[in-house]
Design a protein around this nucleic acid. Sequence first.
DNA 1: AACCAAGCCAACCGCTCGCTT
DNA 2: CAAGCGAGCGGTTGGCTTGGT
Length: 335
Amino acid sequence: MGRAPCCDKANVKKGPWSPEEDARLKAYIEEHGTGGNWIALPQKIGLKRCGKSCRLRWLNYLRPNIKHGGFSEEEDNIICNLYISIGSRWSVIAAQLPGRTDNDIKNYWNTRLKKKLLGKRKQSNSNNNNGISSSSSSTEDPKETLSNSALERLQLHMQLQGFQNPLSFYTHPQLWPKLHPMQEKIVQTLQSLNDQNPNFLNPNLQTATATQLLQSQPPKSNDFFIHPQPNSNSISLPCQIPPSSDHQVSNFLQVDEFLDDQDKAEGFMAQTDEQVAEFDWFKEVGGSSKDSLIWWSQNNNEHDMRSASSSNSWDSTSVLQSELMFQDFELGYNL
DNA sequence: AACCAAGCCAACCGCTCGCTT
DNA sequence: CAAGCGAGCGGTTGGCTTGGT
């Protein structure tokens, strides 16, 4: 069935709202409320606007107690934590930040917070390129063919979730569309680290604030969350970070040391061209992680314990998301 | 001063969900 | 049960601003 348009597009004004329109809409809603029908509202007021547009204007701008800009470090941390935990569910994230709108948070994440993390990567990467890894400089480098969005998702996922929660995804083979050989190396190495130091991953961890959030606002039907499997192998999942910033930082430091060790460890260095490429890729992700994790841990260390919403647990985002991510990944690598 | 690129953000678009008929 | 509809959501776009050359 076709869907009828919500309004007569031809007779609807688009673009920025004038102060007069704002005033009319605000005055009407403050006096009468929305009446539960946004579609009919603009006609009542005499505005040539789509009902959806009115709703958006009210929610994102005219509504009382709206804050614009000036995000605090604490808010940054909450946004980052929740993004990693639940993904781009901006309305859920916004619900944890009074006065903030989903649109604001989404814009803030896309324009600043994400770059705050990835910017470190670029800086780190350019430094690395002055040294080793010249073999990946070809324009045919598979990395270059990976779409930016996929690369960002992959990097952020690896940086912020993977290293926070190193095995949450990788130790569920049934969830893997297909593993890149480098990912297998990562998993193996992290497993090895965990074998050496059981505290590297702590299986006996507490529940997630983010999970609780999602229980109050359940995921959509096509979402799927990874839950602990009591009978799984030695490394139980998900590896939720215990409610101690010390633990968190400790894990960061170990990852940091791990990455440094890998930089130095010739034994780990790839021997074939393919392996060199893989290693370059790993260094790119890993190198960025180091810096970002430092930033992350520092900020978390300063602020995370102050907010109940600032969860220290790291539920996986949906498999759908991960699969899409790896579909892009596969395309990029032509796996 | 002029031009260009990047950053930023308000607003739009199209989709899904859930309620009503 | 299916169709119709509005609300809500997340992704994307377009235009303004800012900074660099």
